[in-house]
């Protein structure tokens, strides 16, 4: 399977990446090489192998339902470019 330039533009848009034509062309070639590798891996017969969702074969550790974090709002808000009235300020986006 090979990607087209349109696929690359669409993925870039979904990922909020701006690319010029030369960058998109270069990205297309790089992605197509990755897809070739994926194609090779998909050719391997894995019918007898259980699916693996994580490279480490252990289960998720759980934590007890306790509130352990205290209010650090001021320190965290200070990291943001803009804040007011205890809120992070961002350009207006209304869906």
């Amino acid at each position: 399977m090979a990607l087209t330039l349109d696929d690359v533009r669409r993925v870039a848009q979904l990922a909020r990446l701006r690319q010029n034509d030369a960058q998109a062309q270069a990205m297309l070639e790089e992605l197509n090489r990755i897809f070739a590798l994926i194609g090779e891996m998909q050719a391997v017969d894995t019918s007898a192998v259980a699916a693996m969702s994580h490279p480490r074969d252990v289960a998720q550790r759980l934590r007890p339902d306790r509130v352990t974090e205290t209010d650090r709002r001021d320190a965290l808000l200070a990291l943001a470019p803009l804040s007011e009235a205890g809120l992070y300020l961002v350009p207006k986006v209304i869906e």
Binding site: E84, A85, L87, Y88, L89, V90, P91, K92, V93, I94
Partner: peptide
């Protein structure tokens, strides 16, 4: 998201 007037911006809680 709070869209009240924060100088034309949105506030995030």
């Amino acid at each position: 998201s709070l869209h009240e007037d924060f100088h034309g911006m949105s506030g995030i809680d």
